[in-house]
Simulated assay, not measured.
Amino acid sequence: MTTQHIAAQPPARADVAERDSRAWIAPLVATILLAFLGPAALLFGGLSAMATDSCGPDDCSPALNTQLSVIYGTLTFGTLPTLAAWITAWALPWQRRWSAWRTGAAITTLLPPLFVLLLVFTLPAP
């Protein structure tokens, strides 16, 4: 009769057991979309001043001037929060308990460029 020796298995660690194998999906989707939306927002936001060509910057409607100011403010001050949310989406631990925060950070990454594009495409009449 032979005796079988069963190799002792180390106990499963709790953090390995809850590791999220799909944690990379939300940051990757946000990165790919940001690669397209970011430059588009910069291009169209930067060119949006041409909406004042027919009336000049001093004679345009206050609504147009306000919207252009919001576009430029978002392009200027929205870059740092976008970068912080993008880094956060990748840097959070890849565990299931952080998946909602990771997805939220990935969505937050896309908000400033989407907001700029929304404002550009809804510019009021001069």
Rank of each mutant, 00 (worst) to 15 (best):
T122H: 09
F121H: 07
A100D: 11
L114R: 02
L118A: 12
S99F: 14
G104W: 12
A85N: 07
L117F: 05
A89E: 05
S99E: 11
R96D: 06
L123A: 03
F115I: 14
S99A: 06
T108K: 11
W94T: 14
P112H: 07
P113Q: 09
L111I: 11
L117N: 01
R97L: 04
R102H: 07
L123V: 11
L123G: 02
W98G: 02
T103M: 10
V116N: 04
F121S: 07
A85V: 00
T122S: 07
L114C: 07
R96Q: 05
L123S: 03
F121E: 06
W101R: 14
P113S: 07
W98C: 03
A89T: 02
W101E: 12
T109C: 15
L114H: 06
W98E: 04
R97V: 11
L111C: 02
P112K: 02
I107A: 13
W86I: 06
Q95Y: 12
L111R: 08
L111W: 15
L117R: 01
W98A: 06
A85H: 03
R97W: 09
F121G: 06
A106Y: 03
V116C: 11
L114I: 13
A105E: 05
A100Y: 11
T88A: 14
V120N: 09
R97E: 04
G104T: 01
I107F: 15
L110N: 00
W98D: 03
W98I: 05
T108F: 15
